[in-house]
């Protein structure tokens, strides 16, 4: 595929400055500069800190991506950028940078949806997406079940969180347990030493809730239940079994996620499930999803953890699909849309 389009992807929707280079359906290089260490001392992502870091990291990250991919910027055939959803000020840095690149290089610009990009990234790992695809995206910013007939222009939302995102619940529970930010990897690690001994609530899985919110999620009740449980232990002067609480919490989250995802596949007659987003790196989620997909006769596709978290490769992967399928390019006047709906694949 030497003459397949070379697409540069720019991702700045949260705290990672991501620059990816994809040729056709092949990932050449994915360069990431993360400001996560700067946010850790604030206990969460601070938008202004993230935006400043994006500006600082933009040029060095583009340079590194080109160097490692062995391409020159002038060889790029198109520029794709996350135009939303995400942190407004952070998105603006990426959108402005992508416009400047497209204008300077004289190539088309594609402003694309961050969530659709999370789905498209699997193309560079496992090949063309089955159509339709059923995708579950779980991260600090999103918890969505999507039906994707065509990732370049037809993405449908089946459900999403009605309160906290799944990754947010991990961060908040980590804090309750005295584990560092970001909570996901620390809870995963602690949980490996523990047992599932506490039966924490599974939001929106019983009775009328299922009728009204079959494919939606809710994690704030779970977070509150964990916090009350820990407080009760502390009030009684007893030690908090951190590993057991982490394991029990993680079990509740992954149980709900995988149960609803498999149900969505069955309901919509889709024979495979794709999982993306930072929480897809969670070892328990991966194991339970595999078990349940096997039991239901579904194929499970999960990109490598590095491609599940926010990165530029996913934006480049979707941009390349836009080019290959002849989708219209974006205008230089596009805006950053912090609340871009998931159904809007490009602008």
């Amino acid at each position: 595929m030497a003459d397949a389009p070379l697409v540069l992807g720019v991702e700045t929707s949260c705290d990672e400055t991501g620059i990816g280079l994809v040729r056709g359906e092949t990932l050449l290089f994915d360069a990431i500069a993360s400001s996560v260490d700067e946010h850790a001392r604030f206990g969460g992502v601070v938008p202004e800190v993230a935006s400043r870091a994006h500006l600082e990291a933009m040029v060095p990250t583009i340079e590194r991506a080109c160097r490692e991919a062995g391409v020159a910027l002038r060889d790029v055939d198109a520029v794709a950028v996350t135009s939303g959803p995400g942190l407004a000020g952070a998105l603006m840095v990426g959108v402005a940078a992508a416009k400047a690149l497209a204008l300077s290089l004289g190539v088309p610009l594609y402003g694309v949806n961050h969530l659709a990009s999370h789905v498209a990234v699997d193309i560079v790992e496992h090949g063309p997406l089955p159509e339709p695809t059923l995708a579950m995206l779980v991260s600090g910013g999103h918890s969505s079940l999507l039906l994707v007939p065509d990732v370049t222009h037809d993405v449908r939302s089946l459900g999403s969180t009605i309160d906290d995102a799944a990754g947010e619940a991990f961060d908040k529970v980590a804090r309750v347990l005295g584990l560092p930010f970001p909570g996901g990897p620390h809870i995963d690690r602690a949980a490996r030493e523990g047992q599932v001994v506490i039966d924490f609530p599974r939001g929106l899985t019983t009775g009328r809730d299922v009728e009204r919110h079959r494919f939606d999620f809710s994690f704030s009740g779970l977070k509150t239940a964990v916090s009350r449980w820990v407080q009760a232990r502390e009030a009684a002067g007893e030690p908090v079994p951190v590993a057991d609480v982490a394991a029990s919490f993680q079990e509740a989250v992954t149980d709900v996620l995988t149960r609803k995802a498999v149900d969505a596949c069955r309901t919509h007659g889709v024979g495979h499930l794709q999982i993306g987003g930072g929480v897809a790196a969670n070892s328990r989620l991966r194991a339970m999803a595999q078990e349940r997909c096997d039991a239901a006769g579904l194929e499970l596709r999960v990109p490598a953890p590095k491609l599940c978290t926010d990165n530029g490769a996913m934006v480049a992967a979707l941009g390349a699909q836009m080019v290959l399928r002849g989708r219209p390019a974006s205008d230089l006047g596009i805006r950053a849309d912090s609340s871009m709906p998931v159904t809007e694949v490009s602008v």
């Binding site: 935006s51 500006l55 933009m58 402005a96 940078a97």
Partner: peptide, 19 residues
Amino acid sequence: PFTGLRVGMVTAVTTGLAL
């Protein structure tokens, strides 16, 4: 104001890089 300022700054540095 930060967000506006950054738009010009990042446009300038990426334009310089690309050209």
